[in-house]
């Protein structure tokens, strides 16, 4: 039986180890490797270089081994304590409470007597609107933009004296 057995296949395959690249390839490979490394380094952004340097620093001091030492554990605990203290001692932001609007006292007589007091200071404005919502709704026409009207009369146009 003239068939390829495992041994013959193995022998044939071993011959493939003689398939080599062009002469001089291995001599130039290292130069090519250096050239590519340099090019890649030049293409890297600044932040990447910084990260690499930081990583090198970490590996240089072998910080990973320090994690098992009591000193490192203590340092981490102290840092955490300081941070938590700082967080809890941060002053609370000032909260502005909504206070009642100061009610200005009305003068004793506003209608029957003459007064030199400024109407702005003495007049108590009513916060109640002069018209109610149903009235507004009635005046508003569909399709027209809403129109806003001040309910109070401007100060400068108001007479301060009554006869």
């Amino acid at each position: 039986m003239d068939e390829f057995n495992d041994n013959e296949i193995s022998k044939l395959l071993r011959l493939k180890r003689y398939e080599q690249p062009a002469p001089g390839y291995f001599d130039n490979f290292l130069h090519e490797f250096h050239r590519r490394q340099r090019n890649e380094l030049l293409k890297q952004p600044l932040w990447r270089i910084c990260v690499d340097r930081a990583r090198d620093f970490v590996f240089h001091f072998n910080l990973s081994t320090l994690t098992s030492s009591p000193v490192a554990v203590t340092a981490v605990v102290i840092c955490a304590a300081i941070l938590s203290l700082r967080i809890y001692q941060t002053p609370q932001p000032a909260t502005v409470a909504l206070k009642d609007r100061p009610v200005l006292a009305a003068p004793a007589s506003t209608d029957d007597e003459w007064t030199l007091a400024s109407p702005v200071a003495t007049r108590v404005f009513s916060t109640r609107s002069l018209r109610n919502m149903t009235e507004s709704a009635q005046t508003h026409r569909t399709g027209t933009p809403p129109r806003y009207v001040l309910d109070s009369v401007p100060v400068s146009y108001e007479t301060t004296f009554k006869f």
Binding site: K16, R17, L30
Partner: peptide, 15 residues
Amino acid sequence: LVVKYTPRLYGLVYN
């Protein structure tokens, strides 16, 4: 290390 392993790895990758 590169010089040492290039021929061997070349054979592996090439095949």
